Computed example of a mutant assay.
Amino acid sequence: MALAYIGLGANLGDAAATLRQAVAELSQTPGIAQLELSPLYRSAPVDSSGPDYINAVAALQTPMTARDLLHALQRVEQRHGRLRPYRNAPRTLDLDLLLYGTQEIQEPDLIVPHPRMHERAFVLRPLADLAPGLHLKQGPVADLLAACAGQALARIPG
C-alpha cells in the first residue's frame, strides 16, 4: 500500500460541490482506501485567468501503481467534463497526483512529486492540514507555506 496525496481544484460551475462529488467517487473506486479530505480553500487563479478556484488535498492509501492511480483520477475528471483546450485553462475539475509514497517518477505524462506544489499555497495549506510534519525535497511543508505568504487563500467554512 502506498500513501498518496491528490490535489483537487475547480473553478467552473459549483466547484465546491464538484470537489465533494469527486471525493465521493474516489472513495468508491476499487483500490482506494482510507481517503481523507482537507478543508476546502478559495484561491485566485495562478498563471491563468477566470473565476477563483476551490482547492483541497486528499490523502489515500492504495495498492495501485502511480500510473493506475493517475488513470483513475483522469476517469473522474472526464466524468466531470474536464477539457484541456490550453495550458491552465479554467476547469470543471483538476485532480493532480502530488505525492505517491516516497517515489520519484519522471515520465512525459507523470511527474511525482508534482513539480510546482512547493510553490503554491493552495496545495501546501491543505497538505499541511492533513500532514503538518510532512517534509518535501524542498523542505518542511510549514516552511514552504510560510514562503508563499503573499498568495491569498481563504478557508471555506464547512
Rank of each mutant, 00 (worst) to 15 (best):
G50Y: 06
Q21R: 15
L136E: 03
R84V: 03
P51W: 04
A128I: 00
G7W: 00
Q34A: 15
D52S: 09
Q138T: 02
V57E: 06
L93M: 05
A147M: 04
I156T: 03
V76K: 05
P132G: 09
R75P: 05
L3D: 12
T18K: 10
G13M: 12
H80G: 06
L35G: 08
S43Q: 07
A146E: 12
Q74I: 00
A58S: 08
A33C: 10
L19F: 08
V112F: 03
R20G: 14
E104N: 07
L37A: 07
R82Y: 00
L98N: 02
A4P: 12
A58Q: 07
D129M: 05
G150S: 12
L95I: 02
A24T: 14
Q106Y: 07
R67D: 14
P45C: 12
E36P: 09
H135P: 05
H114I: 04
T18Y: 12
D14I: 10
I54R: 04
E107G: 06
L93K: 03
S27E: 13
D109S: 08
G81C: 06
P132T: 03
S49T: 13
G13S: 11
S43N: 14
A16P: 15
Q151S: 04
A146S: 11
L145F: 01
P30E: 15
V112E: 08
A121K: 02
L153P: 07
T92F: 04
Q78A: 15
Y86C: 08
H80Q: 11
L144M: 05
P132Q: 02
L98G: 01
P115G: 00
L19A: 09
Y5C: 06
S49V: 11
A59G: 13
N11C: 11
P132I: 02
I156L: 11
S27W: 06
A2M: 12
L110S: 05
L93C: 05
A58K: 06
E119H: 09
T18R: 11
D94M: 01
